[in-house]
């Protein structure tokens, strides 16, 4: 009887869903797509220059409803994880030296915040660029850490719309994980990702 009462008045399940991965894998593009699909507005700035997202961006109480199930989601966009950030890369991308140094410092601080935040995450969407080989140390380290911490994880093989994309290589490299090929830019595969996400977050 008590259980029935609890079930009846049970709050909607809540979960923090974190988009994490290397630099320029399309985390903010995906964050914007999810945000726009469920709240009608975008949440992050997107830029061709690396490390546009330099701090955690949280969107709370996203009413995520898929296939008859719902989730009170905190969507978290994070800076691209890197083990080294060279301000000279930003100078090459057209920033002044002063701007580049400032951007590198902010990006570094953002990466540290993202690494620390991993412990609080309920579901991690690890973004990978399908056009690249999935053997970089950052992705391997991130996935290994999530496995050790027993976090619910989905690998999002992004940029699957590009002709050189090989999402099947990501699938074969990480057979222990769910891998969902998508194009965050054009939306292909996104419904499949939403279905997997609501399933994993249960």
């Amino acid at each position: 009887m008590n259980n029935l009462f609890q079930k009846f008045f049970q709050k909607k399940k809540s979960a923090s869903v974190c988009l994490i991965g290397e630099v320029n894998t399309g985390k903010s593009t995906l964050a914007n797509r999810i945000s726009k699909d469920f709240t009608g507005k975008e949440m992050s700035d997107v830029s061709p220059i690396a490390h546009e997202t330099r701090d955690l961006i949280k969107l709370e109480h996203v009413d995520f409803r898929v296939n008859g199930a719902s989730l009170d989601m905190t969507l978290v966009d994070t800076p691209g994880i890197a083990s080294a950030i060279d301000y000279k890369d930003f100078v090459q991308a057209g920033l002044s030296e002063e701007e580049a140094i400032q951007r590198a410092k902010e990006a570094t601080s953002g990466v540290i915040s993202a690494i620390k935040y991993l412990q609080e995450v309920d579901v991690a969407l690890v973004l990978m660029d399908s056009t690249k080989t999935p053997f970089d140390q950052v992705s391997l380290t991130l996935l290994g850490t999530l496995e050790m911490q027993k976090k619910k994880t989905i690998i999002v093989a992004n940029k699957a719309d590009l002709p050189e994309a090989k999402p099947e290589m990501i699938k074969s490299t990480f057979p222990q994980h769910k891998v969902v090929p998508i194009s965050a830019l054009y939306g292909s595969g996104i419904d499949n990702l939403y279905s997997e996400l609501i399933e994993v977050a249960k």
């Binding site: 290994g144 496995e147 911490q149």
Partner: peptide, 26 residues
């Protein structure tokens, strides 16, 4: 292990300045 490697990366970035931009691991 991956946890330790991630911690090493974090600690390296905490020492970041214009002369030390982090580490590469392999």
């Amino acid at each position: 292990n991956p946890n330790e490697r991630l911690y090493l990366m974090q600690k390296a970035l905490e020492k970041y300045d214009e002369d030390f931009i982090g580490i590469q691991l392999k």
